[in-house]
Amino acid sequence: MNKKLFYRKSNKSGASVTALVIVITMLILLFSLLGSCANSPDDNEAADLKIFTTLFVLYDFSHSIAGDWASVNMLLPAGVDIHAYEPTPQDIILLNQADLFIYNGGSSEAWVDRLLESEEVNPKNTLRMMDFVELREETDSGIIEQDEDHGHVHGLMDEHIWTSPPNAIAMSTAIKDKLIEIDQTNKNIYEDNFNVLQAELNAVHEKFLAVVKAGSRDFIVVADRFPLIYFTAEYGLNYYAAYEACAAEAEPAPRTVTTLIELVIEKDVPYIFTIEFSNERLADQISKESGAEKLLFHTVHNLTQKEIDQGITYVGLMQKNADNLEKALADE
């Protein structure tokens, strides 16, 4: 009897344990199913979106808006000037695998127009940034060394549109809208990410406005190429520069060196600007003869690999530009 009672009690305990195991297993399965329905980049088809851009600035905006929901890649190798870039056959293959190809447009990217005309790239998958801002013609006003020496074609629209933060907002808006068009599922994510980026770009814009308003000078001197017409026009700045925006880098004419040295001395200019990837030889000459110090104005068209690895962004570099501009416009 005792054995039977003991046996039956054991049976009941075993049944309870078995039921508990079943319940736990069902709960695990349930949570697994719920987890599989969660909105995560690894499981969502949107994570498979492939975006290619030409310039770093376009890569940066795309990555900020898409986040982990797309693979964003830059065609332009780190540290390479866009004026010297031509796509390889492998690059063209990658473009045809992309869900979206974002390029700037302009003379430096004429190769894109050739690919589109020859139907080597699908136009439906492309986004041209110069279509979304008010364009300005390239100018030789304020340029010391005219481009007869460099064989540049006049009458073209200046392509350096992103140097104006309001233009950067317009470009980012276009990227956001295109992402939503091809991936409605993650519309809210793209809009939220864009709103964060827009707030940062607006803050940079307000900082430049404040710096220019407080400045004692209304002009800058650029001892380099001048890809800043959209920037100076946006903030009402005058300028003197050595070369036009797309001029080939070459030894400056003696007249250019002399004119800029005399200008800097006459106007008592404490700082002169260079742009990224410059050899700075002209700026060094002017600095040596005039005593003016060099400052960088980074146009953010491309970065070095080290800068990319450090996570440097358009917003961060433009904030540094604002700091340097504040120095250049101050009454020292």
Rank of each mutant, 00 (worst) to 15 (best):
Ala223Tyr: 02
Asp81Asn: 11
Tyr239Leu: 09
Gln285Lys: 15
Glu289Gln: 12
Ser71Met: 09
Gly142Tyr: 02
Arg225Met: 01
Leu127Met: 01
Asp284Ile: 11
Leu115Met: 08
Ile92Trp: 03
Ile93His: 12
Tyr59Glu: 08
Ile189Gly: 02
Leu237Trp: 05
Asp177Asn: 13
Glu45Ala: 15
Met129Ala: 09
Ile65His: 09
Leu76Ala: 05
Ala15His: 12
Glu138Ile: 02
Leu295Ser: 08
Pro254Ala: 06
Asn188Trp: 12
Ile65Ser: 04
Asn188Met: 14
Met130Ser: 10
Ala242Pro: 02
Asn193Gly: 13
Lys3Tyr: 13
Gln90Gly: 09
Phe297Pro: 07
Glu262Met: 09
Ala46Trp: 04
Asp60Ala: 06
Ala98Thr: 03
Leu94Lys: 15
Ala19Gly: 10
Ile229Cys: 04
Leu317Gly: 05
Glu137Arg: 11
Phe52Asn: 05
His154Leu: 15
Glu117Phe: 11
Ile261Cys: 08
Leu127Lys: 04
Ala248Val: 11
Met130Ala: 02
His160Val: 05
Met74Ile: 07
Ile272Leu: 02
Ser62Lys: 00
Lys294His: 04
Leu115Pro: 00
Leu209Val: 15
Val17Lys: 12
Met171Trp: 04
Ala253Arg: 09
Val264Thr: 03
Ala19Ser: 14
Leu179Tyr: 01
Gln305Tyr: 08
Leu228Cys: 06
Ala223Arg: 02
Val221Ser: 08
Ser216Val: 07
His150Ala: 11
Asn44Val: 05
Ala241Glu: 00
Leu209Met: 13
Ala322Lys: 00
Glu262Lys: 15
Arg225Pro: 07
Ile24Asn: 11
Pro77Cys: 08
Ile175Lys: 00
Glu109Gly: 05
Asn104Thr: 06
Glu251Val: 03
Asn302Lys: 01
Tyr230Cys: 03
Trp69Gln: 04
Asn73Met: 08
Phe31Ile: 14
Phe208Trp: 05
Val17Cys: 10
Ser108Leu: 10
Leu135Ile: 06
Glu206Trp: 06
Asn104Val: 06
Asn122Thr: 04
Met74Tyr: 06
Phe219Ser: 11
Gln305Thr: 10
Pro166Ser: 06
His152Val: 15
Asn104Leu: 07
